[in-house]
Amino acid sequence: MLNITKTIEDGRGTLSLEGRLDTMTAPELEQVVRDTIPGLTALTLDFAKLDYISSAGLRVLLSAQKQMNKQGSMKLTNVNETVLEIFEVTGFVDILTIA
């Protein structure tokens, strides 16, 4: 289960995720990101309530990061230890901006 809360202000978007970002829920985030990202100069992903992220979720993050690299910046906030460990294991810490 994944709940996504979206807020946009002056070309700056925030997506707050709650739950698990896995194979089942990744397509949802992918769709939201695809709809939200055009025209954004900054994208913040709030992971405060995200429990778990799978490789499918990582793929969506990679894709979003690549897109934002072209039009602005993207950062992750409130990343918990479990998720941070996954980022570390997979090397995603090297390409993501984690605040």
């Binding site: 990582l58 990679l62 570390e88 294991v89 997979t90 090397g91 995603f92 090297d94 390409i95």
Partner: peptide
């Protein structure tokens, strides 16, 4: 030591 995933970058 970890590197980034293959195919990502």
């Amino acid at each position: 030591k970890h590197g980034f995933v293959i195919g990502g970058m």
